[in-house]
Write a protein that binds this DNA or RNA. Sequence first.
DNA 1: ATATTAAATGCAAATCTTTGCAACTAAGAA
DNA 2: TTCTTAGTTGCAAAGATTTGCATTTAATAT
Lengths: 150, 150
Amino acid sequence: MSCGEKLAEELRRKGFRVTPQRGVILETIAHMGDHLSVQEVYSEARERLPGLNIATIYRTLESLHRAGMVDLFYPGSGPTRFTLRDPSAAHGHLVCTECEHVVDIDTDLIGRLVEEVAAETSFFIDPHHLTLLGICDACFQAGRGKRKIS
Amino acid sequence: MSCGEKLAEELRRKGFRVTPQRGVILETIAHMGDHLSVQEVYSEARERLPGLNIATIYRTLESLHRAGMVDLFYPGSGPTRFTLRDPSAAHGHLVCTECEHVVDIDTDLIGRLVEEVAAETSFFIDPHHLTLLGICDACFQAGRGKRKIS
DNA sequence: ATATTAAATGCAAATCTTTGCAACTAAGAA
DNA sequence: TTCTTAGTTGCAAAGATTTGCATTTAATAT
C-alpha cells in the first residue's frame, strides 16, 4: 500500500470521505516533504489531476488539519505552510525571523513545555501546533538578533 | 503627552519616520485595546484621516512590528491580529481552538519557556511573539477538546 | 530657510485565502 | 444493486494581504 493510500485510509477512518481529488492531494504531499505551501501542492497535484481547483486544496488541507493529519504553521512572512503530522512524534517548529531557517523541536521538549503551561494556566497546548519565532544560534552569534531581543 | 505621541516618539527614536498617517494610526491603536485586526484599525483610523489607504495600515503595522512595538499573532482562524507590546512585560497568547478564547501568558512563565528551549536547542524564542494554540480549561472540561488532543 | 534623499504614501494590480451555492458523489443502508 | 444523504467539488465572487511604481515628504544637513 502506497503512502498516499495509507493516508487515505486514515482519513476515511476519521470520518472524512476520500475523493479522487483527495487521493491525489494525499499522494502528492506524501512525496513532497515538509513545509509546503498551498501553491506548491496545487501546481504539483494539478499535474496529476488537471482541473483540480485550488479551493479544493485549501479545503482538503483544512479537513486534514481537523483530522489531525497535518499541522499548519506561519513562518514570520509569506504564505501559511503545513506539514504531514508524524503520529509517533509530536513536533513543533522554531522559525528564525532573521534567516527564515526552520528547526524542529523534539517530542520530549514539547512534552515538558505542555506540562509547564498546563500546570500554571490550566490551558492545554496542542503539541502538534507549536510554532515559535525567534533567533537561531547562528544569527544570534552573528549579532543579527540584537535588534529583536532588544 | 498623549499615548499616541509617546508611541510616535518611540517610533522616531527607532529610526522610523512619523508621518501624519502613522500619527493617526498610533493614536488609534493606543486607544483601541488588544487583539485588533487590520480592518478594525482601518475603519477607525480612516474616520480621523479620510483617504488613508489600507495598504498604509499594513505597512505601518509591519514597521511597528519591526520596531518591536507591536506583536502579530494568528488565532486559529480569521485574519491576523496584533497588539501593542507592553515593554515592561513580555506576554504571549494562548488561543483556544474550540471557543477562540484568548488568554495571556505572564512574563515569568514565558521566561521559563524561553530558557528551557534555549538550553536544549540554542534557539532564542522571541518572548513577545509567543502564540500557542490548544484547548482551554472550560472546553477541556466540557469534553470538547478530545478530538484535537486525540 | 533651502536643498537633499531615503523612506513613506496612494493607487492599482497581483496574490493569497475564504465563502456561497448549485451540482455531484462516496459511503453506508436497504 | 439501487437508494439516500451528508460531505465534497468547481466556480465565481468576496475578502485579506502584498507588491511595483510614480509621487510626496520627514528628517537631516547645508
